[in-house]
């Protein structure tokens, strides 16, 4: 399903149907996903439709830019590093691109979303919440529902740390895909309840294609990089 399309096309995968067809001479984009439909008339001579995974912080409506993944607690000794694999939710973005501009046409996903508050009600942030197991190897995933995150964790503090959650900034997310969706991220524990996280701009395995993320399509400049977790992990 992921890829670039010009003119009419039709892709159907399980509960998802994405197509662009000519209706009475008008090119019409249509999407159906778990009973919900979306339709737009496309007026374009040279434009392309791009379908790829995007940052999972847009549905059911955009309220935050943060993604929080909760996982089985890990006790990490001072100075230790380890790479594990987590699952993260997938949202599928449909973009329209021409020589001069790129625009978000549609975002959809399988399943439901859940949000949470990371930190206190006064100083915290709303975050998209997702629960994952911790996997030592790349786990099997439902390709359009969940992705694989290679998660490198390093305890740079002088104390043992118990970690069961990681918060990321969606704008930092670098997403790659082939048969499944993937991202690579790191977490550095700095001290008691303090850690920094960031995404790594590298494919999980060679040959994966890079997604065009929504912040790129929306031309939002990214000033800061990484996320400082100040309210515990």
């Amino acid at each position: 399903m992921f890829g670039r399309y010009r003119g009419t096309f039709r892709r159907e995968c399980g509960d998802i149907l994405v197509e662009a067809e000519s209706v009475e001479g008008l090119l019409t984009y249509r999407r159906r996903c778990e009973g919900k439909t979306f339709e737009r008339i496309l007026v374009s001579d040279t434009g392309e439709v791009i379908i790829n995974p995007v940052e999972p912080v847009n549905l059911p409506e955009e309220v935050t830019n943060y993604l929080q993944i909760e996982f089985s607690p890990m006790m990490i000794e001072p100075g230790a590093s380890r790479t594990v694999y987590l699952k993260f939710p997938v949202e599928i973005g449909v973009l329209v691109e021409s020589a001069k501009d790129i625009k978000v046409l549609d975002v959809f996903a399988l399943g439901t979303q859940k949000y949470t508050l990371y930190g206190s009600p006064t100083t915290g942030v709303i975050a998209r919440w997702y629960q994952s197991e911790v996997y030592p190897e790349i786990p099997q995933v439902e390709p359009f529902r969940e992705g694989v995150m290679e998660f490198s964790i390093h305890n740079a503090s002088h104390e043992w740390a118990e970690v069961s959650t990681a918060v990321f900034k969606g704008v930092d997310m670098k997403i790659y895909y082939d048969e499944f969706v993937a991202a690579s991220a790191m977490m550095k524990i700095l001290g008691q309840g303090l850690a920094e996280t960031d995404f790594i701009d590298a494919p999980l395995r060679p040959g994966m294609a890079k997604s065009i993320e929504l912040y790129t399509a929306r031309k939002i400049p990214v000033i800061g990089r990484g996320c400082l977790m100040e309210c515990g992990f």
Partner: peptide, 10 residues
């Protein structure tokens, strides 16, 4: 629990 915006935490 089924509502996306009924926060998980608090």
């Amino acid at each position: 629990a089924t509502h996306p915006f009924a926060l998980k935490s608090p």
